[in-house]
């Protein structure tokens, strides 16, 4: 098979982060993996004791086995290109994040994986009328009283 040529005149990207890449050219194989624990905290400072507590394997989402992909059906494929060009004038992307990819050119095998765990940590119960939605953690750990708190 004669490879097709991709032609892009102009690329403008503001940010590429967390295992993401921008590739111009052909690729045989590419694998990217990203995992993240995103903590939405009330207090702006990071508590160093969290370093020991926040272990990836402690959360099920990082240990659960990825379901096996359905193996591709072997099909005899013939493709003819006339003319062998994919033309794009401009690409404008604000952000590429978390094992994502922008690829200009042909690619044979690509495997991207990302796992994200969100935790919202409030200083006090944000919804006291509906306690049932807030399962208070049974882990008994010394509750740190926030500084400068009234009452």
């Amino acid at each position: 098979m004669i490879p097709r040529t991709s032609e892009v005149n102009h690329i403008h990207i503001r940010s590429v982060l967390f295992s993401s890449i921008v590739n111009v050219g052909d690729t045989d194989e590419h694998t990217a993996f990203s995992r993240a624990i995103a903590i939405q905290k009330y207090e702006p400072e990071f508590n160093p004791t969290l370093n020991n507590l926040l272990d990836f394997p402690r959360y099920q989402i990082f240990t659960m086995v990825r379901p096996p992909a359905i193996p591709p059906k072997e099909v005899v494929m013939e493709s003819y290109h006339d003319p062998a060009f994919i033309k794009v004038n401009s690409i404008d992307i604000f952000g590429i994040s978390t094992a994502a990819m922008l690829h200009i050119g042909g690619i044979q095998n690509i495997d991207l994986e990302s796992r994200v765990k969100h935790v919202r940590d409030y200083r006090t119960n944000p919804d006291p009328k509906n306690l049932s939605i807030v399962p208070f953690a049974t882990v008994s750990r010394k509750h740190r009283e926030p500084k400068g708190r009234e009452e």
């Binding site: 591709p72 094992a99 200009i104 690619i107």
Partner: peptide, 17 residues
């Protein structure tokens, strides 16, 4: 494009698998 995120792909070209 505003965002390409969480294992997404923008491809200008051909792909095998």
């Amino acid at each position: 494009i505003v965002g390409v995120s969480i294992s997404s792909l923008v491809l200008v070209g051909d792909a095998g698998h």
